[in-house]
Design a protein around this nucleic acid. Sequence first.
DNA 1: CATCACGGTATCCTTTTCGACACTATGGGC
DNA 2: GCCCATAGTGTCGAAAAGGATACCGTGATG
Lengths: 116, 116
Amino acid sequence: MAKPRHERLDCSPGCTVEATLGLIDGKWKGVILFHLFEGVLRFNEIRRRLPNVTQRMLTNQLRELEADGLIVRTVYPQVPPKVEYSLSERGRSLEPVIMALKAWGDVHAPIHQKAA
Amino acid sequence: MAKPRHERLDCSPGCTVEATLGLIDGKWKGVILFHLFEGVLRFNEIRRRLPNVTQRMLTNQLRELEADGLIVRTVYPQVPPKVEYSLSERGRSLEPVIMALKAWGDVHAPIHQKAA
DNA sequence: CATCACGGTATCCTTTTCGACACTATGGGC
DNA sequence: GCCCATAGTGTCGAAAAGGATACCGTGATG
């Protein structure tokens, strides 16, 4: 979980780029974080926002984000279970980064090789 | 090459985050781009800056970056061969994104769980 | 009594990634 | 004649990522 992508980060100054990338990489983490910027979400609320994610993957990604200290998992000892996910301080500090990614993506829209 | 990480990007507004991520993800792309911001580099110059990358991987990553239109590959028909890699306009436009990644990484340095 | 919703696990299997290694062609240095 | 550097390519195989599916306990609902 949350293993660094490079064991040996002897890759000159630019390695912190990869270090950050390693945290938000992971196929769904970017979007999960993005949605959490809007506010606290429950497990199935996230799931509904990500139609193609499986339960297992979502659990995985959330656990990794938690292990990296980016999100906080709050379990309410109830039945049926209630679990809320929210951003930690560290996670919130990623906002400019995620927004930079989104801003670029919005402009350079590689979605359909720029249709229209 | 340069396949989107999600075939179906029906992941609400946040999907452009993943779209961008999909371009600069890939274990070495971030660092490669970072080094190219400093200037044009030859194949082996990049290789020397990334001590742990194999030839095959470096070639792969460069080809994907090229396919995504982020870098330009210039071959000089000489012997021994000379190939230069430089950023395209599109690639250069990623600078704020890469720098945001680096800035966060520098501050939150997950390198050794924040020693000292 | 059967089913749904909740927030997961566990298992299996396929796909993708990535490192190691060998090989290519040419020209220059020793 | 042999090895070095350049910029790759090809193949192999291990490891990791990721998808499909089934299962868990509980309480409310029908």
